[in-house]
């Protein structure tokens, strides 16, 4: 039963891996930086676009503004009014606008296909609706990140494979969640800094470890993860949290709502993780109920596939550390 579910989930992830996820997976987000130069004049430029070479989305500024890249002239009224972004749903899942008025701190706004525009006032605090928009946007980004994050899902799959009791699985997944929430918050808030490429390589290695643990179990040896699954999940969860934070910090966070954005992103990650675990458990149950049996010769295949894919990522990420 576990073999079947694991094989299916592995196919899922192997296919996502083909899509270029061998390296750190890309969240398709674009960033537009707008910086005030003088009264009514701004410098507006896309600073982060897709690694895949997708063109930047089109920004539509308030009608009284004229934009000749990179200069934005809004006259005496300044940048007040609605800014919207086109082609959001087609190419990018979101756009972050980093807006810096002269002498003020940078404000970040996240636009999504559901809310592709932002209203700039002359200043002032955030309304309840704006906070709800922000939460919705970051929950979606977190959800998307985990579903495209094949490496994180593969690690969770390995844990599901190794942990036999449902109660222990709950504790293990909870430990993983708590741990990655810690490091996600710490790294995003700037309390700790870890090099991104090293983290990505180490994450790949953590999956190789889980693959080896599965092989051990099949040979009748009781490894560390089988003995203390939640401890292993917690330890590696700390590592995976750094991986999540790399994606989040690339987006730029709204400085006045950083905790809310962080919390929302984490909620999105958890929703995605729970959905994945639920699907794997449902497939296990389905196979059990339908009495689906696999040839015993297939036993080692999932574990070697997990280990093989992860080692491929590890080598690729290590080479990136030293070649660029």
């Amino acid at each position: 039963m576990r073999r079947g579910a694991a094989l299916l989930a592995l196919l899922w992830m192997a296919l996502l891996a083909i899509a270029g996820a061998a390296y750190a997976h890309e969240t398709p987000i674009a960033v537009l930086r707008i910086k005030q130069e003088t009264a009514g004049r701004y410098y507006a430029q896309w600073i982060f676009q897709s690694d895949k070479g997708l063109p930047a989305p089109t920004a539509v500024f308030p009608p009284h503004c004229t934009y000749e890249a990179p200069l934005l002239d809004c006259g005496s009224r300044g940048l007040v009014g609605m800014l919207s972004v086109e082609q959001l749903d087609q190419r990018y899942s979101g756009v972050v606008i980093q807006f810096t008025r002269a002498g003020e701190k940078t404000q970040a706004y996240t636009l999504t296909p559901g809310s592709p525009s932002v209203a700039f006032g002359p200043g002032g605090g955030s309304s309840l609706a704006a906070l709800a928009d922000l939460m919705r946007a970051y929950i979606l980004i977190g959800f998307e990140h985990i579903l495209l994050g094949v490496d994180h899902l593969l690690f969770v799959l390995g844990l599901i494979w190794l942990v036999r009791s449902r109660w222990m699985l709950l504790k293990t997944i909870t430990a993983f969640t708590i741990a990655h929430s810690f490091t996600l918050a710490a790294a995003t808030l700037g309390w700790v800094g870890v090099p991104e490429r090293a983290v990505n390589a180490a994450i790949a290695l953590s999956i190789v470890f889980v693959g080896a643990e599965i092989i051990k179990l099949q040979r009748g040896q009781i490894g560390l993860t089988v003995r203390h699954p939640w401890v292993v999940a917690f330890a590696f969860g700390l590592l995976h949290g750094f991986g999540f934070s790399n994606a989040l910090t690339k987006l730029g966070l709204p400085q006045d709502s950083i905790v809310l954005a962080l919390l929302s992103f984490n909620i999105g990650v958890e929703i995605g993780q729970i959905a994945f675990v639920a699907v794997v458990l449902a497939v296990q149950w389905g196979h059990r109920t339908m009495m689906v049996h696999f040839d015993r010769r297939l036993d080692p295949v999932p574990a070697y596939a997990i280990g093989g894919i992860a080692m491929f990522w590890f080598l690729g990420r290590m080479s990136m550390m030293f070649t660029s």
Binding site: L8, W12, A282, W285, G286, T289, M290
Partner: peptide, 13 residues
């Protein structure tokens, strides 16, 4: 393929 597999498996189960 994955959607098809999941749907018939879970419905049948």
């Amino acid at each position: 393929v994955m959607a098809g597999y999941l749907m018939i498996l879970l419905t049948a189960a």
